[in-house]
Design a protein around this nucleic acid. Structure first.
Length: 246
DNA sequence: CTAGGGTTAG
């Protein structure tokens, strides 16, 4: 593309290509293009910087990320909730809770509100690090801030508790779901089945499953047991549940 | 009708 011509790229086209290059791991090419962009007098904006920050976060290069964030603010560009979500994602994936917390404080002090994407990312990290109870606490915080948790968020928590073997917490979570008027779906059901079946706790499991069936999950359950060995624990459970279907 | 952030299963 010729400079100064009618076809010279703007910030959107540069950012789009930079993002594409980063996604493919072509970091040095992306850097060159960023330099070229600046030389052409095209000013990078919050999207350009956020793309770079996100790529660095995903590479776990948090020190470099901090430098870019600093450079961004220094050029008078305010980070937004996307920028901070990437930072929080980067730190929490690495289990660096202190720094993640610092990012939360920084963003709120700038008047930027974490949204469902920010929370989903953060809660997933907590659960993967065996901190499902802390992640669950965020649900209450979100509700208080009028941010409705969704079924995916609950699934993440169920999966975390299932991995940790925290059965009482899973039952509490079902109550929390009911309070937020969210009906368990097939995936939630499967996570629960797997958690109990793996530990041979079918007696505890049955009342919950029956309750779920009454909430209409049974139509999905019907197909669920197919392809499972009928002799296996899970297979026998599926068989029992299928009797609820007429 | 301008690009960027997340995600649960057997």
């Amino acid at each position: 593309m010729e400079k100064g011509g009618v076809c010279s790229p703007d910030v959107v086209s540069y950012t789009t290509v930079i993002h594409g290059l980063l996604k493919e791991g072509e970091v040095s090419k992306a850097c060159s293009l960023f330099d070229e962009m600046v030389q052409q007098g095209v000013v990078p904006n919050v999207v350009t910087y956020s793309s770079i920050i996100d790529a660095l976060c995903k590479a776990g290069a948090m020190d470099k990320t901090e430098l870019v964030l600093w450079q961004m603010v220094d050029s008078g560009i305010q980070p937004d909730n996307v920028t901070y979500t990437s930072m929080i994602h980067g730190y929490s994936t690495l289990g660096r809770w202190k720094e993640a917390g610092k990012m939360f404080r920084e963003m709120t002090s700038r008047g930027i509100i974490p949204d469902v994407v920010t929370w989903t990312s953060f809660m997933t990290s907590l659960c993967k690090h065996g901190r499902s109870r802390e992640a669950t606490g965020i649900i209450d915080y979100m509700s208080a801030k009028c941010h409705k948790p969704n079924i995916v968020l609950y699934s993440i928590l169920f999966h975390g508790y299932a991995t940790e073997g925290c059965f009482d917490d899973m039952i509490n979570l079902l109550d929390s779901m009911a309070n937020n008027a969210i009906v368990p779906n097939r995936q939630v059901f499967s996570i629960l089945v797997d958690a109990y079946a793996k530990r041979g706790m079918m007696d505890e499991a049955m009342p919950i499953f029956t309750g779920m069936c009454e909430q209409g999950v049974i139509r999905d359950v019907y197909r669920w047991g197919q392809g499972v060995s009928p002799e296996s624990t899970v297979g026998r459970l599926a068989d029992a549940l299928n009797k609820f279907v007429r």
